[in-house]
Amino acid sequence: MTLLEAIILTVITASTPLLIAAIGELVVERAGVLNLGVEGMMIIGAAAGIAAAITTGNSWFGVLVAILAGMALSLVFAALVLGLAANQVAAGLALAILGLGLSGVIGAPFVGVQREGIGKIEIPVLSDIPFIGEILFHQDLFVYASVALTAGVWWFLTRTRAGLVLRACGENHAAAHALGYRVLRIRLLAILFGGGCAGLAGAYLSLVYTPFWTSGMTSGRGWIALAIVVFASWLPWRAAVGAYLFGGLTILQLHAQSAGVPLPSQVMAALPYLLTIIVLVVIMRARRGGAAGPACLGTPFVPDR
């Protein structure tokens, strides 16, 4: 394996959780709901996933539990912002805090337990192609799932009637309601989808990326996923570009560190966060301040009859 191959492979593994979480949040925001609790749902997925995998000895069961855990937490959020029309920003923050705490409680008995991560699958024949084979056809299922999710969400949002209705809820919930669409029900489904994706992204972290539990292991990836959605102008394919850009930068920083770049390690570690800020500024500047976000993003909807 060449160095370039190795770098590309690690970039893919670093980007996949970001992409999965960002795609989920993208659908939520397209429906007009701002769920800032991605970090909380992601880490609860990581904790519940590894706890279930260790207890039952089955990694795939862990993945399922992680998705369900993310959805369960997003349901709490939905009850608050849809059922009670609460402030979405505050409710999202509450979700992030609650998720971090709960994950610590769930994960505490499993600290230090090492286990085998979910391995990669090899597609016969194709994976033997030099270079391309190793990168494209010798990955774990999550990587393929993230690409499928991106394509699926793109197709759903732009090519199906249901996707159009979902976007209508995000752009103008009063009009969608007047046309007879159940705004709250559609938003609930979107929130659940987002929660499931965040849980899946968390499972990737604790079952594939670093196959053991450490508290706070998402280390801000949920927030970066939120930034990616803004970066992507709420478009699925651009979210993939954004996720790989951020994943690439994180890996670049690791390689620069091992190559002996004369900078303190803390500067390198802080780089992804600084770059997130810079990218946000650049993208907003390019748009001249006019955000292209869904018009009803973050506003609660209370049906009148």
Binding site: A85, A94, L98, V105
Partner: peptide, 19 residues
């Protein structure tokens, strides 16, 4: 972390009561 859970729940219920 049990304390954090408690504090997170507290924020949830505060927001619910605001509604």
């Amino acid at each position: 972390d049990a304390t954090r859970v408690l504090q997170g729940l507290l924020l949830f219920f505060v927001l619910a009561c605001d509604s």
